[in-house]
């Protein structure tokens, strides 16, 4: 598969230099030919049709395009796809399924952590990264960890509740130590 700005929409771009990269997306290894200037967010959305990653401000401010890059949150509008060669990327599609939600997704459902839903994938991935590092965060720590993600609907209150709900659920689901 080839990803160039010229072929999104399709049109031949034979003279455009491409680089072959291999990235692991949601556990699946993908080998792709990409134009160096292709942004990771565009590779995911147009190239791989993973449209759960949203493109919001396009200026590294809003966090709607947040994915996990080797497990750490990253604004995918601010990385070239070629830079992901040899790395692991996780998008919201990799978190869970409709029948088997990730606890963070379940939290957003239980606590009404979304309204329009545009910021939600980025919020959930930033929250997942937080909980992997800090399974028992305070409300303040949740607010700090999500401070790179903007939401124009909720006023953040229910998002914070959702993450705290997920943290508790994930702690309770952990096998108890003897």
């Amino acid at each position: 598969m080839s990803s160039l700005y010229e072929v999104i929409p399709p049109a031949a771009g034979a003279d455009v230099p491409v680089r072959r990269i291999t990235i692991e997306v949601n556990g699946e290894s993908r080998t792709l030919d990409v134009e160096p200037r292709l942004l990771l967010v565009h590779l995911l959305r147009q190239g791989l049709n993973l449209t759960g990653t949203h493109s919001g401000c396009d200026t590294t401010s809003c966090g709607a395009c947040t994915v996990l890059f080797d497990g750490r949150p990253l604004k995918s509008c601010t990385m070239f796809a070629v830079m992901a060669d040899g790395h692991k990327v996780e998008t919201v599609e990799g978190m869970g399924s409709a029948s088997e939600l990730h606890p963070v997704q379940e939290g957003f459902k239980q606590e009404h952590g979304l309204q329009c839903g545009f910021c939600t994938p980025g919020m959930m991935l930033a929250a997942k990264a937080l909980l992997e590092r800090n399974p028992d965060p305070t409300e303040d720590e949740v607010r700090w960890a999500l401070s790179g993600n903007l939401c124009r609907c909720t006023g953040y209150q229910n998002i914070v509740k959702s993450v705290l709900w997920a943290a508790e659920k994930m702690r309770n689901d952990q096998p108890q130590e003897a």
Binding site: T66, F69, P73, K75, G148
Partner: peptide
């Protein structure tokens, strides 16, 4: 360190 940009930008 914790005041530079935002937490996601700081990972990179």
């Amino acid at each position: 360190a914790s005041l530079v940009a935002d937490p996601i930008v700081r990972t990179r």
